[in-house]
Amino acid sequence: MKTGTLKQILLITDGCSNVGEDPIAMSALAKEQGVSVNVIGVMENDVIDEKGMQEIESIALSGGGVSQVVYARQLSHTVQMVTRQAMTQTLQGVVNRELTQILGNKQTIEDLPPEQRGEVMEVVDELGETVEMEVLILVDTSASMKHKLPTVKEALFDLSLSLNARMGKNKFSLFVFPGKKNDVEKLLDWTPKLESLTSVFAKLSTGGITPTGPALREAITYFEKKRSLRNLISRNDDEYYEESI
């Protein structure tokens, strides 16, 4: 199998959106365009309120991604875990659809006897190791997030460390919202290494509004259009398109 590029948005926030479009709808839009959305909620000592919690879960659910709410100190481990888990989840979906192609109607990996699943899993593992990834990181910099930003930065270094241990190539870019003039501001253009982000957080202005929805909408447009998840498996491209229409 030849691999294409896997696209993810990683949203790091600590609460509810309060301006603009519904972030859940924007997340569903991202999914339609082959971009999965993962959300990490950062708590301080207190718990995030029910509403914020629900929004975090819903964004990930409609964006086909993974969500988790953690304390700031667990952020590093969580960010890399969520990203990898979402990657595996997407690949499993792709491989499952491929299996449906081969095995016929509605057959998935669970319908295979355990002995044969191992080989399928090998394929998923192999893909996870070699697939190219584009991860757009979207950080909430509203006032309450301000003192969590050093931890966020550290977590992002850690993410780059984890993903760069794979054989496949990675590209990262970093956006914050709200931006100085617009809803969202680009801090770092596509780059293979997040280490270049050392000073960018310093010049942030932290404002009161949280335009999560508009930020997601903007973020989707930054992904390169030419390749999508659908090209992930190039071998049976034509059949695959037929099936998915």
Binding site: S76, H77, D125, E129, D158, L161, S162, L163, N164, A165, R166, M167
Partner: peptide, 25 residues
């Protein structure tokens, strides 16, 4: 994990990446 791939699962304290002393390969 198979040699040469990225470590599948780790715990920070025992992970050289956490201590800045190497990759997660």
């Amino acid at each position: 994990t198979l040699k040469g791939r990225a470590i599948k699962e780790f715990t920070e304290f025992y992970d050289r990446g956490y201590w800045g002393l190497g990759s997660r390969k």
